[in-house]
């Protein structure tokens, strides 16, 4: 299973739901899998994707929220698992695309390449978690009755060929409008 194949499965499961992508290759693959307004592409803030997803999930409890993270990125913000483990938002799903490398920066090995276990880390923070290696298993978990909050998808690197829009404010405003919080309406409410 390549990361792009796994990302396509996340998009299929998401339907109209928001998807937050970590910077670099995960965001590039989300764009390649299918650009849509409900995609929030980060261009920086490595490690923050799961935190952003948590914030959206808390703000919109009726929406299902997906995060496409990377192994290197999640290792940069492991405390996020403790916070999410404390709150256990039932509407949040984090798919960690674990390719064992910092692919965006040239393929340096991450600790997961040497056995660091992100599923075990999530479980240690009292989160339901699973590791999958095939498209069938990932698709079943994304669609099924059991919905672990953290899914570690062991993926092969798939060199991205396209990049999302660079305009951060465009990404934000398109995203907010698509999930029902247009910024202009927020301003009007603030002035009223």
């Amino acid at each position: 299973m390549t990361r792009l194949e796994a990302t396509r499965l996340v998009l299929t499961a998401a339907g109209d739901a928001p998807v937050v992508a970590s910077l670099g290759h995960p965001a590039y693959d989300l764009f390649a899998a299918g650009d849509r307004p409900q995609n929030f592409y980060t261009w920086g803030s490595m490690g923050m994707a799961s935190s952003i997803g948590l914030g959206i999930a808390l703000a919109k409890p009726a929406a299902r929220v997906f995060v496409v993270d990377g192994d290197g990125a999640l290792l940069m913000n492991l405390g996020s698992l403790a916070t999410i483990g404390l709150l256990k938002p039932p509407n949040l799903t984090i798919v960690v695309m674990d390719n064992g490398e910092y692919a965006t920066t040239g393929g340096q090995a991450t600790p997961t390449a040497h056995g660091a276990d992100l599923e075990a880390a999530a479980r240690a923070m009292r989160l339901d978690a699973a590791t999958v290696r095939t498209e069938d298993d990932l698709g079943a978990l994304l669609a099924g009755g059991r919905r672990p909050i953290v899914i570690v998808a062991k993926v092969a690197e798939s060199a991205p060929t396209a990049k999302p829009p660079l305009d951060c404010v465009f990404i934000k405003q398109r995203f907010m409008a698509a999930i029902g919080n247009p910024e202009e309406a927020a301003d009007a409410a603030g002035r009223a």
Partner: peptide
């Protein structure tokens, strides 16, 4: 709603998500 973060950078990530979701 008061939300504890483990680290300050994480707090800004969560807050950004809250804003995207329509909160202040």
């Amino acid at each position: 709603r008061l939300t504890l973060a483990t680290r300050e950078e994480e707090a800004f990530g969560i807050a950004a998500g809250l804003y995207l979701g329509g909160r202040r």
